[in-house]
Design a protein around this nucleic acid. Structure first.
Lengths: 145, 145
DNA sequence: CCGTAAATGCAATTGTGTTGCATTATGTAT
DNA sequence: ATACATAATGCAACACAATTGCATTTACGG
């Protein structure tokens, strides 16, 4: 699930979205593409001590606006961000896949490969987006129990 | 959707869960059963000025532990609580229904009557619960647009 | 009515996220 | 290469949700 990209590809990605190639953005991209779970601002802050908290929030927000990443809340209500799969466009995400939140390691997994069944709402409700959450144990934690 | 109960029934409910019948708990129960949307601590605080913020948080937490209400996060990551339908047991909620968060009025609706289709996870994931979120316009807001 | 355990109120703290403004860095035009 | 305009960053302060510790009050069984 983790996608391998090099620095040049990250620079191209920023170019494509008309974003300036800054150290903070390249490092955030590098970290998010390297792991297969979603990442929160506190996650990033604990690793990148030399980058300001506010900068990380702003990097995450601009990436979400551009459709590079999408937001998903974990069991604590904290925002986590994961790299969008192909098919996401600016301001029009296709993040209607399943999010799995491990109750042990707290990891948030995006299970893009699953196709979700159609869901009908009662009359009057006009949905603009769906997200399905599952909580429980991820493969690694269920082995270790 | 709003369930009508009187004070005696709320006292019975507290008795059944071995909770002391305090003013704060009875008032929270009364408010939550009277409305058909989920309620957050800030919601309660704005109405019950004479009850401490911390007390409201503790009342909500103990009700959730006992299976009287269940927690659902809104689009801002704030915890909202809604009355559990029959079938919820202590520490084992059956809140696998659909939660609808209106982007206009910010209301969180629990659509209990909908049955969710079964969802299969990739090998290794051990789910303990599912929740489906939809966002968009609720019936009232879609009329007013 | 009394005593004990539970619930509450208050103060302080943590954690997540935002805003305003001065400074720095990026990318472009020269 | 250099200068300039604009965007991005860092810092301080703030806003809000939620938690913790401790003293006080309340509920309820004896």
């Amino acid at each position: 699930m983790a996608q391998t990209k090099n620095t040049y590809q990250f620079e191209d990605l920023l170019d494509k979205h008309q974003l300036k190639k800054t150290a903070a953005r390249l490092r955030v991209l590098s970290m998010m593409y390297a792991k297969n779970t979603a990442t929160s601002q506190p996650d990033l802050e604990s690793v990148m001590h030399d980058i300001d908290r506010v900068t990380l929030y702003r990097v995450l927000n601009v990436f979400e606006e551009k459709g590079i990443i999408h937001k998903v809340f974990d069991l604590n209500g904290t925002a986590n961000y994961a790299v969008c799969q192909s098919g996401c466009h600016e301001h029009h995400h296709h993040d209607e896949h399943l999010h799995f939140n491990c109750t042990a390691c707290k990891g948030v997994f995006c299970l893009n490969e699953l196709s979700l069944p159609a869901i009908n709402l009662p009359a009057g409700f006009q949905p603009s987006g769906f997200t399905v959450y599952a909580s429980g144990l991820c493969p690694k934690c269920s082995k270790m129990q």
